[in-house]
Design a protein around this nucleic acid. Structure first.
Lengths: 218, 218
DNA sequence: GTCTATAGATCGATAGAC
DNA sequence: GTCTATCGATCTATAGAC
């Protein structure tokens, strides 16, 4: 099942092959105050690569360099581990968007959104992949939280589209559908873009901005 | 984990709640020549709802109304079951596209593609969902087969876009990227559209066609 | 805080009766 | 072709030593 060929399996995210990061056998009683973050990082990578259901706590522990039981000092269970990864991702997304300096006019705001979305998501492909693929593995309660955060982000784009319609610069039959269509299109970047390819991220942003701009144009 | 509320968990496909279709206890030696198709149908539904890795052979068997061991009269293993579902889906997709009557000119062909893609995919949401989400659970050999079929389908759209550029009706900086962007956008329909909503499928097709047409316009 | 060890459940797949 | 029964592996999570 596993493979490491890069560029393989487009249509889903595949990590670069990387040397396993296991540590030396750890003396009993030793400790590391960065074990928590390392567990999160290992879970993020493994969930993105193989899927939540296919990854065992033992695999995560092995990647960190501890035994499986030690994980439960940092998370009550596997489900909470998934939820915390997704929640942090969505929080960072919202905060980054709000921190991005606004510009004048709906057209400028739409360009800002397109470039922000591509840039932000390409910087954390593992988290993005999990956020879109593992929703069904959340408990109902956890799903409701993530879903609300996602809707807030979508609402930010829809507000821009509505503003553009009012300004008369956009012609959009249904702003909610257009919102989802734009985000879906932009997310497609992650299924094929690889750093070091023939196009820089800047060029990709511009190509997508061109398509989005025209798609909603009056 | 499981829930049955409809409209819940947008962003991934969720089946309608349906009464379990288990059969009466089966007398030994009895048989049914439709067990094979019923296994495929059960696997399709369960893989789409819970994910390949999260579904057990026992669950599939229970849905069909047989014991787990009986499944192995129809499939050598779980992996082959997944592969056959994806392969059939991609075959049907290619055949349906080739059977759809071509029209004159790139603009007409693009509209035909947009409407065909939305219609075909909305008619089989389970298969579509599996085809996009379970690629990583294919063995390398099986993945190569599916990936080739997918590329062939994408090439059909790219040929239309190239034709439009030559005709001068489209202005597209990169036809490969535009191909992927259009397909990604159209696939987004499946994350939110539900039969019986405020828009008919015909209306949805028209809205997306409007956006696609403008996005690639000269 | 990490270890070893394990409980208790469930998995994919097979064997042999009917 | 389906059944019952089971093998051997693997899983999440916990208990108790250090």
């Amino acid at each position: 099942m596993h493979n490491c060929r890069q560029g393989h399996k487009r249509g889903f995210y595949l990590n670069k092959c990387s040397v396993s990061f296991e540590r030396m056998a750890r003396t009993q009683g030793s400790h590391s105050d960065i074990t928590g973050p390392r567990i999160q990082a290992a879970a993020l990578r493994l969930f993105a690569q193989h899927g939540y259901a296919a990854v065992s706590m033992r695999q995560i522990a092995a990647e960190v360099g501890v035994q499986a039981g030690a994980l439960y000092n940092y998370t009550p269970d596997k489900q909470s581990l998934l939820f915390s990864l997704m929640q942090r991702h969505m929080s960072e997304l919202m905060e980054a968007w709000q921190a991005d300096p606004a510009v004048e006019g709906a057209l400028g705001e739409l360009e800002r959104f397109v470039r922000f979305h591509i840039r932000f998501h390409m910087e954390r492909p593992d988290a993005v992949f999990i956020a879109y693929m593992e929703l069904r593995n959340l408990s109902d309660e956890n799903f409701a939280v993530i879903e609300t955060m996602r809707r807030n982000y979508e609402d930010a784009l829809e507000a821009v589209l509505k503003q553009g319609v009012e300004e008369g610069v956009f012609r959009i039959p249904d702003t909610k559908i257009a919102t989802l269509a734009v985000i879906a299109m932009l997310n497609g970047v992650m299924t094929w873009y690889r750093t070091g390819g023939r196009l820089s991220l800047q060029e990709v942003e511009t190509i997508y901005w061109d398509m989005v701009r025209k798609a909603v144009a009056a």
